[in-house]
Design a protein around this nucleic acid. Sequence first.
DNA 1: AGTGTATCCTGCAGGC
DNA 2: TGCCTGCAGGATACAC
Length: 277
Amino acid sequence: MPELPEAETIVRGLRDTVVGEKIVRVEVLRPDVLRESKRRFAPKVRGRTISSVERRAKNVLLRLDDGATIAVNLGMTGRMLPFKHPPRGASRPGHPAVRFRFASGSVLVFDDTRRFGTVECLDSTEWAVRSARFGPEPLDPSYRAEDLLHALGTSRSPIRSWLLDQKRIAGVGNIYAAEALFLSGIHPLRPANRIGEDEAIALHASVRSVLSEAIEAGGTTIRDYRNAQGGKGEYARQLFVYGRNGEPCLRCGSEIERVVLSNRSAFFCPDCQPGSD
DNA sequence: AGTGTATCCTGCAGGC
DNA sequence: TGCCTGCAGGATACAC
């Protein structure tokens, strides 16, 4: 669900409200979102002040004043919802999993309907190890087309699967993989190592433009995604292929196709993205 | 090395 | 109305 643009939008929305807040109490309503026991998690977090909010891949990071990091993976339906006052009535989150209560009286709720998300508190060493498992950030100015080209050459995996692999490139999920491949005219089944230099340059550009335009639009809301203010993202209106199975291609009019690849839908235009081999 | 499959969960849309 | 199936922005473990 939330991919890089959604995580980035949440991070930007949280900064104003949550930086400088001191955590005085943690309520774990759904212990299964933690990767350790409540007993171990809570003391690491209680009494700490949030010094900054960042993003790595699809993760929201709350950096603490002792150097630790609360890493939130949003899974498919995770939300980060800050409230000035504890919410009541209809504005109350439907599936709160973890509540952080601050000294100011405000609250940050990690809400997750399906509970595929995770919340962890890692010290600086643990975080460094974790972060090293992710591939390069595609929007980092130092990430070049030649880096992508070289990395592609080491894998025979279908390019759609390659793009979803977080250790190869960070933050790309099913929506933006589909859109980037459409924009660069590459079939989702094409083996990564058979993508040529020109195509790699096009893919590099389309991955970056799709992600940055989606950030500008505040992310993509299909159903569940909400930003830190509870609002929807508007990028769904700009999707060319994702979820448009059976509808006409906006560029050539051919029917958008859906194939299942690694158990996940891949959407593409058979004419704009010809030949898998 | 890479793929298919199953798993963790809940909710919604569509068919009957 | 209800019941059933299939599907969903993710990530991981397993057998082949």
